[in-house]
Design a protein around this nucleic acid. Structure first.
Lengths: 178, 178
DNA sequence: GCTAGCATGTAAACGGTTACATGATTAG
DNA sequence: CTAATCATGTAACCGTTTACATGCTAGC
């Protein structure tokens, strides 16, 4: 997800590495902090692939730094990642939220709705839940024998409900726009 | 989290590797599948550390397989991980849910409540939310200019509310038991 | 005898964590 | 001139993904 996050923020405007770090921290830092050892190598890899460009900035400001911009190839890659997300990007909540944060960059209501529909289908699937084994039989976690496992289900249910409601409304809104 | 998951399931009963895989799949497979290339090396590492033991099983059944059991050291390590979870185990929803799935193995209501309180504190912290930059100013995602970013907030809010309610009730229940 | 499924593993490529290293400006 | 902060990086270690490899047993 780091590459997507970088491409997404740079699509909005050119940024320095540390500004990028601030943006990422604001987006997901409360859940999982970004480390320099992850960010800078990721920037280098994207540059090596020609997806972003690095421009040294003249003396202004504090220390020798670069402005990072998205190249046309980078823009294409971003669109591709948003339009055809991997399976895990749909099922994993953290990944999906990152996708949502940049989905407006797709600019095609129908393609946006398609991504939301994939998530809705996943949440509506009957197998989306926790299972535990009890005496060799698989038990849905709502019937689990422990307080904590029942809590997991209860929270997951409430979460899923709230998200399905929003998804349904958002899809309708996008379909109306298309 | 894989090590914790393995130790947790083995604390309930001895298992074969593939049974372990079934258990893990039932627990988190809908979000993130477990691959053999992650599971078996993880088993080996835990065995090397003396936390689990591998017993070859006599001819019964299908193919040459081993029964995995938790050693006393493994039980201690499991307790330690449950009692003193890392910061990310509290903030990352996926990791936290894994913790919840095995928290009953702690057997000390006060220690269990302490873990739930750490999560509740995190959810109550004012900085737990998404931020975006708009013209150089940090904007809370509820005021974001895009449908999708507002959706993120709405869902996160509903989720957080449901979880805080459950946590509050569960903590009260555990305190009554202690 | 063959195929399907059970059961366990290995290896290369990749990416993240942690800790360390460095240079440059600004505030006291 | 010294400490703090800005800004960028590197290296060792570790774990995961993906793909491949293998051996055993049961049913047709």
């Amino acid at each position: 997800m780091l590459p997507l996050t970088i491409l997404g923020f740079l699509a909005e405007e050119p940024l320095h590495g540390y500004q990028l770090k601030d943006r990422i921290t604001g987006l997901t830092g409360h859940v999982k902090p970004v480390s320099d050892g992850a960010l800078y190598p990721a920037i280098t890899r994207l540059e090596d692939k020609g997806l972003i460009a690095r421009h040294p900035e003249p003396g202004t400001g504090a220390a020798p730094r670069h402005v990072l911009t998205l190249t046309p190839a980078g823009r294409e890659e971003l669109t591709r990642r948003l339009r055809e997300p991997a399976h895990t990007d749909i099922t994993d909540r953290n990944r999906y939220f990152t996708l949502l944060a940049f989905l407006h960059l797709l600019e095609d209501p129908e393609a946006q709705a398609a991504v939301l529909r994939r998530r809705l289908d996943f949440l509506n699937a009957p197998n989306a839940g926790f299972f535990f084994d009890e005496d060799g039989k698989s038990v849905k976690s709502e019937d689990a024998p422990t307080l904590f496992r029942r809590g997991m289900t209860q929270i997951a249910r409430a979460t899923s409900k709230a998200e399905r409601e929003w998804l349904t409304a958002a899809i309708a809104e996008l379909e109306a726009a298309a």
